[in-house]
Simulated assay, not measured.
Amino acid sequence: MLWIASKSCGLGPYRADLVETYWAWEQDPALLVGYGRQVPESLEARAEGMTQQLRGANVRFTVYDLAGDEPVPVGVTTLLPDDAVRTAEFVIMIGKEARGRGLGTEATRLTLDYGFHVTNLRMVWLKVLAPNIGGVTAYERAGFQRAGVLREAGYWLGEVCDEVIMDALAREFPGPSVVKALFEG
């Protein structure tokens, strides 16, 4: 089941039956470096964590590649809301096999669309390690802008690096909106 979709990418429910798939993506060294996390996690710990995540108030999606005959799960996007101020932190994870094809950018854009038009957020923000040029570029293509820098706040390949703070505002969201199209159709 897809909640919203473009031609190439869809967002559906975060699923307990995919915990092993999510875990496998999270063990990829490139993902560990990009997240700034230095340690892998056991499947048992991940399954326990997922139980908590499924009960939480965060907005989580499984990202699907729609290029084939059937939707294929390729990643996860998450909005971590702060309801008091109508903002959320954005986090994305795309599996190695799906990187470099624009699916991360499209999943980010769809998640922003949902956040602004369904969850009624006014701003979404993220942190990305400065050396992750591909990530910064993908976020900019999806509608994020650079908002600032946390100096020496992260690590990239064993070296201290800056973290770039980026934000996207609902009033500046680049269209067209897939969510709004559902109501106009």
Score class of each variant (00 low, 15 high):
residue 43 L to F: 11
residue 89 E to L: 02
residue 92 I to G: 14
residue 57 A to N: 13
residue 58 N to D: 15
residue 69 D to Q: 07
residue 66 L to N: 04
residue 158 G to I: 01
residue 55 R to E: 15
residue 67 A to Y: 08
residue 173 F to I: 03
residue 113 D to E: 05
residue 146 R to S: 14
residue 60 R to C: 15
residue 172 E to D: 14
residue 151 R to T: 05
residue 71 P to K: 07
residue 125 W to S: 02
residue 5 A to I: 00
residue 84 A to W: 06
residue 162 D to C: 00
residue 129 L to M: 11
residue 156 W to R: 03
residue 7 K to W: 14
residue 132 N to Q: 10
residue 26 E to N: 13
residue 47 A to Q: 15
residue 16 A to G: 11
residue 24 A to Q: 11
residue 96 K to Y: 08
residue 115 G to L: 12
residue 182 L to M: 15
residue 158 G to E: 01
residue 146 R to P: 04
residue 12 G to N: 09
residue 112 L to F: 07
residue 13 P to R: 03
residue 1 M to K: 11
residue 54 L to Y: 13
residue 50 M to I: 06
residue 101 R to P: 08
residue 172 E to Q: 06
residue 183 F to M: 07
residue 132 N to K: 01
residue 154 G to R: 00
residue 180 K to H: 05
residue 76 V to S: 06
residue 5 A to Y: 11
residue 24 A to D: 07
residue 76 V to G: 00
residue 1 M to W: 08
residue 41 E to P: 00
residue 100 G to C: 11
residue 155 Y to N: 05
residue 12 G to L: 05
residue 37 R to K: 14
residue 56 G to W: 04
residue 160 V to F: 00
residue 2 L to I: 06
residue 152 E to M: 00
residue 38 Q to K: 05
residue 101 R to K: 09
residue 183 F to P: 03
residue 168 A to T: 03
residue 183 F to Y: 15
residue 67 A to H: 08
residue 116 F to C: 02
residue 174 P to T: 04
residue 30 A to M: 11
residue 60 R to S: 14
residue 83 D to Q: 09
residue 126 L to E: 12
residue 176 P to R: 04
residue 180 K to G: 03
residue 47 A to T: 12
residue 159 E to I: 09
residue 60 R to I: 09
residue 171 R to Q: 12
residue 182 L to A: 07
residue 35 Y to S: 08
residue 181 A to W: 03
residue 86 R to Y: 12
residue 74 V to F: 04
residue 166 M to A: 14
residue 9 C to Q: 04
residue 140 E to T: 08
residue 140 E to R: 07
residue 151 R to W: 03
residue 29 P to V: 09
residue 3 W to E: 13
residue 37 R to M: 14
residue 82 D to I: 10
